[in-house]
């Protein structure tokens, strides 16, 4: 089981490449942040692929408004056979 806080820190680290002061919580609507861009979306997807071996796409991001939603989706995909 992926820890939600660790997951949040992992995504936050990607945002901090863009803005070192950026802070995220599980309830952050990450697509509404100043930092969010299509490039950052790709970096987040790459990081999730590398770390959890789950590959998300554009529709997955659309379906997940918050970091917590994203976390839940990654957990559910990881548990799929």
């Amino acid at each position: 089981m992926i820890n939600k806080d660790e997951f949040t820190r992992l995504i936050e680290a990607e945002f901090q490449v863009e803005n070192p002061k950026c802070q995220l919580t599980p309830s952050t609507k990450y697509k509404e942040t100043e930092e969010w861009s299509s490039m950052l979306a790709l970096l987040v997807i790459v990081q999730i692929t590398d770390t959890y071996n789950v590959v998300l796409d554009e529709q997955d991001l659309k379906n997940c408004p918050t970091i917590s939603d994203l976390h839940q989706l990654v957990v559910s995909k990881q548990n799929q056979p």
């Binding site: 299509s38 790709l42 692929t49 590959v55 998300l56 796409d57 554009e58 991001l61």
Partner: peptide
């Protein structure tokens, strides 16, 4: 070009 879709396609 839908970059996120192409990423998923390529790496899977």
């Amino acid at each position: 070009l839908k970059g996120l879709d192409i990423f998923k396609f390529s790496v899977t």
